[in-house]
């Protein structure tokens, strides 16, 4: 009699435990699935869907709002994978909403995050041609954006180095050195020959004056002595004209040389100014790139921020986790 009572107590306890287990399983698996839901389609083309499965969570602003109902890998690679989402009908999914795959770093389990990008947009109900459910566009996850920023940073740094290399290339250095050497040689020759040239011009001027005086005297004499000496006077005048023409030519040559030196000087000044601007801009890009890389390194040195988000104390006014 006593052993039968113990069996009854054990049996009753087992039945109660099974009922509790069944109730728990029912509660965990889908008691809330009976709530009305809306279905949406997403075509994922750019993001990896590793870890995504039927039943994976669909979240909006961090709150679970639905689940992945189905997926299909399309034969058309341009359209990628079609994923069917089942979202609680009370959740406002608006026109312009984006869907991104969010993966837990440690477990690798993936879910889908929904984000409404436009404030006060109408609810997403439009059915594109050939679609059974409204289509949510694919977004870009934070991690991809950060990778893109780092790539841009690397490209900018590389471009800056290339610009410096081009600026300081051997050809440019040789060209600038050659130009400077030519200018120096030209200026030196001009400076060296300037006294001699000035002396020549002075002597020519004095000779011309004497010849003019001689010419006047000869003309007077010729007038006095007769026509036979007229030829001599004419020859003297021709000689005088020749000397004048020579002097004019020398003056023109000097003027042309001065103009060419002026143009060369202007060209050099412009080249130096633009090179200086390029150097200023390039050095600033290099400094900024270095600082940005330091910041990125600091951010990567704090993995807990990536895993758990910012600490409560770091949140700004009006912000909450």
């Amino acid at each position: 009699m006593e052993s039968e009572a113990r069996y009854a107590w054990i049996g009753g306890t087992l039945i109660a435990l099974f009922m509790a287990l069944a109730g728990g399983l029912y509660w965990l698996s889908g008691a809330k699935d009976s709530q009305p839901s809306t279905r949406y389609t997403v075509y994922f083309q750019k993001q990896s869907l590793e870890g995504l499965q039927i039943g994976s969570e669909v979240r909006m602003r961090g709150i679970k709002v639905g689940r992945v109902a189905d997926y299909r890998i399309l034969p058309d690679t341009a359209r990628g994978v079609r994923v069917l989402l089942e979202v609680d009908a009370r959740i406002p999914v608006l026109e312009g909403a984006l869907a991104m795959v969010n993966r837990k770093l440690v477990t690798g389990i993936a879910g889908v995050d929904l984000t409404n990008t436009t404030v006060n947009a109408p609810p997403l109900t439009h059915l594109p041609p050939g679609e059974t459910y409204p289509v949510i566009a694919e977004g870009v996850p934070e991690m991809t954006r950060m990778t893109s920023v780092l790539e841009d940073l690397g490209n900018n740094g590389s471009e800056a180095l290339q610009r410096i290399n081009r600026l300081l290339s051997e050809d440019n250095q040789r060209a600038i050195a050659g130009t400077l050497a030519n200018t120096r040689a030209l200026t030196g020759q001009l400076a060296a020959s300037a006294p001699a040239l000035r002396e020549t011009l002075e002597q020519s001027r004095r000779a011309a004056e004497r010849l003019e005086q001689v010419g006047v005297a000869v003309e007077t004499t010729l007038t006095a002595t007769g026509h036979h000496i007229d030829n001599l006077a004419a020859q003297s005048r021709d000689t005088l004209n020749t000397v004048r023409a020579t002097l004019d030519s020398a003056g023109a040559t000097l003027e042309q040389t001065r103009t060419e030196i002026g143009a060369l000087s202007l060209s050099l000044r412009l080249t130096a100014d633009l090179a200086s601007q390029d150097l200023q801009a390039t050095s600033k890009v290099l400094r900024d790139s270095g600082r940005a890389m330091q910041q990125s390194a600091r951010a990567l040195g704090e993995p807990e921020r990536i895993l758990f988000g910012p600490p409560q104390g770091n949140l700004g006014p009006g912000e909450e986790r």
Partner: peptide, 11 residues
Amino acid sequence: GACSLSGPRQA
């Protein structure tokens, strides 16, 4: 702990 790594965050 692993399940709570990517908790809800503000957009």
